[in-house]
Design a protein around this nucleic acid. Structure first.
Lengths: 181, 181
DNA sequence: GTCTATACTAAGATAGAC
DNA sequence: GTCTATCTTAGTATAGAC
């Protein structure tokens, strides 16, 4: 009679994501994950080839979560309203899940799948900009500017820059207004 | 007769910076640095309390370099010209020294000295914006927007985003124009 | 200030029994 | 699929002689 499973792929990925959230990517060791799901470390290798394979899954889950967040925010009828809503949701995601965010945006571009997943997550931005500006080329350009601003702003914010006082929310809104003018 | 020095603080810092440039922060181990300057690893502890102390020095050197680059670029007489020149120099620095750049901008805010050094490096940006916009409060706000855009753009660029084609330089200039409008 | 020697810790990963 | 046992590698850091 074979040994019954004590855990599963999805449970392992969830536990790893939890560890990532709470203690950062360096704490996401095979040992810690194993402890977390209640098995011994070597058992994890029956589910994932190695640590990087597990890390990729965790990243995929994070991207999927971000995509959902963005889709939910992209509801407003008017394009500018939707873009601002997306921007705020994006920022909120980064603040609530800084390690996940960091994993998504600093894991080197990665394979084609991973890249297209990221692109898909941000697709509503491009879509709304196209609808807003008419010109697809201009929209593509503007999308780069907007995502650069968003990424720069939230990564500086979560890294603890912006300690100089002043109203951070105001600065964020001002940047958005400038770019969506 | 005491053992003559085979190396020095400055040489160690330089070697560590070199290692950082060429192989990234993970390659900056005490062993590798020691090999690089031609001593044994334990000898380094006569010069630096521990690895993080050395890393801080390397970061300080990188910030000083960035400051110099920005100051050199801030020469043009007209404010907008100077700001664009600074932006281009900033981007060039990030492309030429991605690991240094990353160290500066992701090492958690750090001590007060480290923070003020970063602020000083970016001071010409604030100065030019004030001269340009008149209003200091508006300039401060705009400085945050501009630095967020710059940081977001160059970090996405060096991380290998922007693989979708299109003219990257053009997107950078477009963002700059939008923010400096 | 440099060295040899070594302790310590930690992580990734595999072999083979059950 | 899980386990115990073990390997391998690597890095930080200290002790004490010279």
């Amino acid at each position: 009679m074979p040994t019954p499973p004590k855990t599963s792929r999805v449970e392992i990925i969830a536990a790893a994501g939890n560890l990532l959230s709470r203690h950062g990517v360096d704490a996401l060791t095979m040992q810690a994950v194993a402890d977390s799901v209640g098995v011994r470390a070597p058992s994890l290798y029956k589910h994932f080839a190695d640590r990087s394979a597990l890390l990729r899954e965790v990243e995929q889950a994070a991207v999927a979560e971000l995509e959902k967040v963005i889709q939910t925010a992209a509801k407003p009828k008017d394009d500018r309203g939707a873009l601002k809503s997306i921007a705020n949701a994006f920022r909120r995601f980064a603040r609530e899940h800084p390690s996940q965010y960091n994993l998504i945006f600093t894991l080197q571009a990665g394979d084609a799948d991973s890249q297209s997943a990221r692109r898909r997550a941000l697709h509503p931005v491009l879509q709304r900009l196209e609808s807003c500006l008419g010109n697809p080329e201009l929209a593509f350009l503007r999308a780069r500017v907007l995502t650069a601003f968003l990424h720069g702003f939230v990564s500086m914010e979560t890294a603890g820059a912006f300690k100089l006082g002043g109203n951070i929310d105001h600065a964020f809104a001002a940047g958005l207004d400038l770019i969506l003018a």
